[in-house]
């Protein structure tokens, strides 16, 4: 009987080694797996490469991981948002590297990684600064850039509900990068507010099939980044 449950966030991230590449779901706070990120801070892995749309806010969650100087590089589309102070400070001090990727290209690179497509052409960013150093090619009179897939050692994502086989459904716009990151990582770890037995999810509504998921961990009452930031919370 397959059972992908991990006993808690700490156990779920226990084997992440130094130097790992980790995809972290979320767009702003929606879908940010704060409890898994905090467990990763406690666990201590460093020299990480993080692939995520943003760089967190305040000093909790992803921003706290950066603040703890565990991250060598981020691959990201929008590293500054409201209340985002940790990344800009580290970046200006030269303590972190940034690969800036248009948001749709970031998503497609991740999807391609999960789908076994090593490269693809996209029109986004053709003729801009972000095209520098990239191969371009014309198809039917329009210029496209060659972009490579992105894959990762781990993905940390947040769902609303999963079954013990790893089938996942999400909450509203918290779905964002979860389904594609789940496909693109060797080990995908999902925190959910509720875990159900097989048969507890209608197969017609499953968003991420369990084949893409390695570990599920129940976090019954996940924290919200904006509430933590508003309360002045920091982690650890």
């Amino acid at each position: 009987m397959i059972d992908k449950r991990a006993p808690g966030p700490a156990a779920a991230v226990a084997d992440v080694p130094d130097g790992a590449t980790i995809m972290i779901g979320g767009f702003g706070e929606a879908g940010s797996p704060i409890e898994l990120i905090h467990a990763l801070i406690d666990q201590g892995a460093r020299d990480l490469t993080i692939i995520s749309n943003n760089t967190g806010s305040g000093e909790v969650g992803l921003a706290a991981l950066l603040k703890a100087e565990r991250v060598a590089k981020v691959i990201c589309s929008f590293p500054r948002t409201a209340n985002s102070t940790v990344f800009p400070e580290l970046y200006r001090r030269g303590r972190i590297r940034l690969e800036l990727v248009p948001q749709g290209t970031l998503a497609e690179r991740i999807r391609a990684g999960g789908a076994g497509i090593p490269a693809f052409f996209t029109p986004a960013a053709a003729g801009t600064l972000l095209a520098e150093g990239k191969e371009s090619r014309s198809f039917d009179g329009k210029e496209y850039l060659l972009e490579r897939w992105l894959r990762a050692d781990y993905a940390l994502i947040k769902g609303r509900c999963a079954d013990t086989l790893g089938n996942v459904v999400y909450n509203k716009t918290a779905r964002n990068f979860g389904p594609i990151m789940a496909m693109a990582a060797k080990t995908t770890i999902v925190q959910v507010a509720s875990l159900v037995p097989p048969g507890g999810l209608d197969p017609e509504v499953v968003v991420t099939p369990g084949i893409f998921v390695d570990r599920v961990v129940e976090v019954a009452h996940p924290q919200h980044e904006s509430e933590l930031v508003a309360s002045g919370a920091t982690y650890p």
Partner: peptide, 10 residues
Amino acid sequence: AIPAVGGAMD
């Protein structure tokens, strides 16, 4: 400046 592009180019 901290470079940030989001989805505008797409």
